[in-house]
């Protein structure tokens, strides 16, 4: 991606340099050729030229449209992650970057990723707007309180890269910096294996789901006062209002913080708000847990043990990856 951005950048530099040089050349040439030689001299009559006016309106317009199309195409790709991504969550707060890997591993101001894999970050902020900026990847996206933004990259070279906060966020704005550590796959595996024993993010979410008593209403058997959440992520949910929404991260978040905003059809607005009771990171764990709840097959009511097996163990059903880097179908594809 960096190469594509640079190609357009240098095209723009070339076009700009061309125009600056041409304009400067004309100004200097006319400036010398037509300098005032006698006091009281005046300029000569010049016939206006409609053709010239049209030419220097149309040519910049055409060039501009080329630049637009080229830039838009890059942007389109920048905002569309591939189907298979390694998912990581990021939470910005004054003044640090917090990362949560799916295997439960947490980092602050350091992000470890493997080389050559598409990494998708889903981010939000605990307080004010921050902006996740890795210059080497030509990549930037604001993290905004109250909503999730995503960005993705595929690092092609191992190394350590600057991570900056690019949106002014207060006193230590320039201290809200970190490092993206891109590692060879085997080193990355070793790094992953060195994680703490907290269990996967989804299993942390499952524990919260029990501690916060979510489970008393959102029962897997569908007999609770709230809807069963198995298979809900990525599905279309009919609401009491008659609307239909896609249950994405933003919907789950809203349903936890402002439950009465979008009530699923057939349910009462009984759920209390969890605003102020759960942190952004706990929200992400809960969401990750809900994502892990696959649809119920009648024959196997508890098909998917929440959170999956411990990190490092292979999951035959999903191939050789550990859950921390399991590949997920991108629901927004």
């Amino acid at each position: 991606m960096a190469g594509k951005v640079d190609a357009l950048y240098f095209f723009l530099v070339a076009v700009s340099a061309f125009f600056v040089i041409v304009i400067a050349a004309f100004v200097i040439y006319f400036g010398i050729r037509y300098r005032r030689r006698a006091h009281g001299e005046v300029g000569m009559k010049v016939v206006p030229s409609l053709a010239l006016e049209i030419a220097w309106t149309i040519i910049p317009l055409g060039l501009g449209l080329v630049m637009f199309a080229w830039g838009a195409q890059i942007y389109f790709n920048q905002t569309r992650p591939p189907a298979e991504t390694l998912d990581i969550y990021v939470v910005g707060k004054q003044w640090m970057w917090k990362f949560q890997h799916l295997d439960g591993r947490r980092e602050i101001n350091e992000l470890h990723v493997p080389v050559g894999r598409a990494v998708r970050l889903t981010g939000t902020s605990e307080d004010v707007i921050h902006s996740f900026f890795v210059p080497a990847f030509r990549l930037k996206a604001d993290v905004i309180p109250g909503r999730y933004t995503t960005l993705w990259f595929n690092a092609t070279k191992a190394g350590r890269y600057h991570l900056f906060c690019a949106e002014y966020c207060g006193t230590k704005h320039s201290g809200m910096v970190g490092t993206v550590v891109v590692m060879e796959p085997n080193e990355y595996q070793a790094w992953l294996a060195g994680g703490g024993g907290e269990g996967s993010l989804a299993s942390q979410g499952q524990k919260l789901f029990q501690d916060l008593a979510c489970i008393t209403c959102h029962r897997a058997d569908g007999q609770g006062r709230g809807p069963a959440l198995e298979g809900v992520f990525g599905s279309r949910v009919s609401l009491n209002s008659g609307q239909v929404v896609v249950a994405d991260e933003a919907y789950l978040r809203e349903s936890i913080l402002s439950p009465s905003a979008k009530i699923a059809a057939g349910f009462q607005p009984l759920m209390p708000t969890f605003q102020g009771l759960v942190s952004e990171e706990q929200l992400l764990a809960l969401i990750e847990y809900v994502k892990s709840l696959k649809g119920l097959a009648p024959s196997q009511p508890a098909a998917d043990t929440p959170g999956g097996p411990a990190p490092g163990r292979t999951t035959p059903a999903r191939g050789p990856q550990s859950p921390s880097e399991r590949q997920r179908q991108n629901p927004k594809k």
Partner: peptide, 24 residues
């Protein structure tokens, strides 16, 4: 001279793919 440079560099910022990198 300066406005020409200022205006042309504005094209970089209008151009989506490049703006993402250089904005802010």
């Amino acid at each position: 001279g300066l406005f020409t440079i200022g205006g042309l560099t504005g094209l970089f910022l209008a151009s989506l793919g490049v703006d993402v990198h250089v904005t802010d």
